[in-house]
Nucleic acid binder design. Structure first.
Lengths: 218, 218
DNA sequence: CCGTTCGGATAGTTCTACTCTCCATTCATG
DNA sequence: CATGAATGGAGAGTAGAACTATCCGAACGG
C-alpha cells in the first residue's frame, strides 16, 4: 500500500507519517522505483505502536525511537529492553541539588532496597526518581506520604512480579521484547489510571461530607 | 525580603519568579510603596511547592495554578481538592476514537469497578485513562498486560487507602488540602519510581541471562 | 495524456516555559 | 544627597518539541 492508505488505516496524517519516517520511528517502505515505495502490514502495526507509546504512554518522539531501536536490535536482551523502556518513560531525572535532604533520601532508598532484597542497580532511573521525590517531600514537610514507602514498595513488588512473568515467553524474541516495552510503558499508564480511580473511591468513603456525598469532584 | 533573596533562598531565577507572579502561581508580595513589594516565608514555601509540582510531579504551569487555586479556595473541600489535583496530573486524556475496542474497554472497567465496589464517578480522569489504555492494549494485542487488571487494582486499592488515611487530618484546612495535593502529585511520581525499581529487580531475577546477571541495563 | 499522488526536503507553525530587555522608580552606600 | 544597583511591571524574544505546509520533479492511473 502507499502512504495515503497507511494514513487512512491508522488515522495518522500523511504529514506525520513523513515526519516519523524522517525521525526513524517508522522504517522506510520497500522501494518499487527510484522515488516510489510500498508499505505493508508491519508498517500499520508499527505505526499503531508508535501512536500508543506517544499518545497513551506519554513518551516523547525521541524516547519512542530509542525504545523501537531496542526492539529492532537483535543484540538487545529482554532485560536490557526493559531498561531502555524505563529510560524512555523516566526521561525527566536531572542532577539533583545534592543537599542534606538528598543524602537522607538516598540512604532511605538504599535501606528500602536492602530490606526488600531487591536487585536494583545504582543507575536505575526509578531509583533516582525515588530519591528525588523523597528529598522533595522532606523539603516540603510531606513526611506523611514518605512514611508510606513500604506500602508503595509492597504494592509495586506485586505488580512488577506479575507483569514480568506475564510478559515472558520464550518464543519470538522481537514480539517478546515488544511486549516488554509495551508492558513497561502502558502498564505505567494503567497503574496511574487505577490509582486515580482508587483514590477517588477512598476519598469518597473517607473524606466526602456525608453519606449523600456523590458530588462530582471534577 | 525582596525578589533577589527569594530567588537565592529557593534557587529559582528572578525572571522565573516574575513569570510565576504573572501567571498567578505566586501571590504578589506585600506592597511597601507604589512600585516595591516585600515577600515572606509563605512565598518561600509556596515557591518550593510550585517547583516540586512542576519539576518532580511533572505538572504544567497551568495545571499547577489550578491546583494552587484549589488549595487557596476556602470553599474547596478535601475531596474536591483531590479531584482537582487528579485533573492536573491526568491532563492528557482526549476524546477517544470510540470504536469496538473502546466500548469493550469501557465495559471491562465498569465490571472492575462493580467487582471491587469502588465509588468512582463516570468523569474520573483515571477512569477515562484506564479505558484508553485498555482499548489501546486490545488494538495492539497486549492481552497479557490487560489481564493483570485485578492485580493492578488490588495494589492500587491498598496504596490509595493508606494514602488517603495518612493525609487526612481535621486540623488546619489549608495545610490539609495542600497535603492532599502533594500526596496525589508526588505520590504518583513515587509509585512510578518504585515500580521502575521493582521491575528491574523482577527482571534481573527472571529474565537476566544467568546468575552472574549484574549487567547495567541503562 | 494529464491531473493526482508520490517521496523527499525545507521551511513554517503552535505551544510551552521560560528569559531578556526596557524603563521609570526606589533603595542603599558613601 | 548623589549615584549606581536593584525593583516591579510589561512586552518581546527564545528554545525545544511536535507537528504541518509548501515545493519539486518523477511516477501512477484512468
Amino acid at each position: 500500500m502507499r502512504v495515503a492508505e497507511l494514513s487512512r488505516r491508522t488515522g495518522v496524517s500523511v504529514a506525520s507519517i513523513k515526519y516519523y519516517l524522517r525521525e526513524g520511528l517508522l522504517p522506510p517502505g520497500e522501494r518499487t522505483s527510484p522515488n516510489q515505495a510500498s508499505y505493508g502490514e508491519d508498517h500499520v502495526r508499527r505505526l499503531r505502536l508508535v501512536r500508543a507509546l506517544i499518545d497513551v504512554g506519554g513518551l516523547s518522539v525521541v524516547g519512542t525511537r530509542d525504545v523501537l531501536a531496542a526492539i529492532d536490535d537483535d543484540g538487545v536482551s529482554l532485560h536490557q529492553a526493559l531498561g531502555r523502556a524505563q529510560d524512555a518513560v523516566m526521561a525527566r531525572v536531572e542532577p539533583t541539588p545534592s543537599d542534606d535532604a538528598a543524602e537522607r533520601a538516598e540512604k532511605t532508598v538504599a535501606e528500602l532496597v536492602a530490606r526488600r532484597g531487591w536487585a536494583v542497580t545504582h543507575g536505575n532511573p526509578g531509583r533516582r526518581a525515588a530519591v528525588d521525590v523523597l528529598a522533595t517531600l522532606e523539603r516540603l514537610g510531606g513526611e506523611r506520604v514518605a512514611g508510606l514507602l513500604d506500602v508503595y514498595a509492597e504494592a509495586m513488588e506485586a505488580v512488577a512480579r506479575h507483569e514480568v512473568t506475564a510478559v515472558v515467553d520464550p518464543g519470538d524474541r522481537e514480539r517478546s521484547v515488544e511486549r516488554v516495552a509495551v508492558g513497561i510503558v502502558l502498564g505505567g499508564a494503567l497503574v496511574a489510571a487505577l490509582r486515580g480511580m482508587a483514590e477517588e473511591s477512598a476519598s469518597a468513603r473517607l473524606l466526602a461530607p456525608g453519606p449523600a456525598a456523590a458530588e462530582d469532584p471534577g
